[in-house]
């Protein structure tokens, strides 16, 4: 993938918008979900939906900090598109009878912490930090999870929906990796050090403290559903492969940071990483929800209704 022309990408994004009403939510096939699948699928879909929503909020933060007007507009669309994915996934849950009336499904505690972090800090974090973490999350979670879902679920409506979602995602990744390269391009030693130094930014540290356990937690969840750990890791390795393909990409210090992290993550024998992080996952599960502040209002924007 060479660096893409962002202006052309914006035109493409604008011309490929789709809506929930493009899908026939009452088409036959809902009964293809087996009884055995149902409870785990419900949990899985809930996570997936929240990951999309969290991704949405991250793009909103990136739009605010985007270095050019074009990129700002692209991120504004991506923000909306991730919201659309979440809406679609909620509509699928509705179709499969997984929603409690109009209630939003509860996010797991690690997602809840990420939501909190995004709401408080993401707007203040430099764009290259999110610009590297987001593609990683997209490729690992979105990518692996969606693929897994399609391997497991036979409902044709689900396949139809994810075909559209995956088209969007391929553009997100295209832009994501291009921007990582842009940011590594011609980086002087000083700039590189400055970028890397963000790792000591308290906001970023807090973010990391929420992000690491989320990944481990998700790993546990998918494994519980029957996705092989290897598949998840294969996706994460893709990040390293695509991101490190060019010299520019490799000279982005945040690519290096995320790359090393994903290596630890994948290496189950790395006790220095997994023991404390798994302990964190466990610890977070004890956080009483009552202690968390009320969910920010952007969370309530989700809907499964194609029309308003």
């Amino acid at each position: 993938m060479a660096m893409i022309d962002l202006d052309k990408m914006l035109v493409k994004v604008k011309s490929t918008q789709w809506a929930l009403s493009d899908i026939d939510w009452d088409a036959p096939g809902a009964d293809l979900i087996t009884e055995e699948q149902w409870p785990k699928l419900k949990e899985f879909m809930t996570d997936l939906m929240w990951i999309e929503h969290v991704g949405a909020r991250a793009f909103a933060a990136m739009a605010k900090k985007a270095p050019t007007d074009t990129l700002r507009e692209i991120y504004t669309y991506f923000h909306a598109e991730e919201q659309r994915h979440a809406n679609v996934e909620m509509a699928l849950m509705k179709r499969w009878g997984m929603l409690d009336g109009d209630e939003l499904p509860e996010p797991n505690i690690n997602l809840r912490l990420i939501i909190e972090w995004l709401d408080r800090h993401s707007d203040e974090v430099p764009v290259y930090v999110l610009g590297t973490v987001v593609p990683m999350l997209e490729i690992a979670l979105d990518g692996a999870l969606c693929k897994f879902l399609l391997d497991t679920v036979d409902d044709p409506v689900c396949h139809q929906a994810f075909e559209k979602i995956n088209d969007d995602e391929s553009r997100h990744l295209g832009v994501g990796f291009s921007v990582m390269e842009m940011q590594g391009h011609g980086a002087t030693y000083i700039k590189t050090v400055e970028m890397a130094a963000q790792i000591a930014n308290p906001r970023v540290i807090l973010g990391i403290a929420s992000y690491f356990p989320l990944l481990n937690k998700m790993r546990d969840n998918v494994v519980a559903m029957g996705l092989s750990e290897e598949k998840l890791y294969a996706c994460m390795e893709k990040f390293e492969k695509i991101g490190g393909r060019t010299k520019e990409g490799r000279s982005n210090p945040w690519f290096q940071i995320i790359k090393f992290h994903s290596r630890w993550m994948v290496d189950r024998s790395n006790k220095f990483y997994h023991v404390p992080v798994d302990a964190l996952v466990k610890a977070t599960s004890y956080i009483p929800r009552k202690l968390l502040p009320a969910v920010p209002s952007w969370v309530r924007e989700l809907t499964y209704e194609p029309t308003a």
């Binding site: 604008k14 918008q17 809506a19 929930l20 919201q83 809406n87 924007e301 809907t303 029309t307």
Partner: peptide, 15 residues
């Protein structure tokens, strides 16, 4: 993203 017979479609997929 566009307008339809009934209203306005926005990029989060809702009409």
């Amino acid at each position: 993203s566009r307008m339809s017979e009934n209203g306005i479609l926005t990029a989060e997929g809702i009409e």
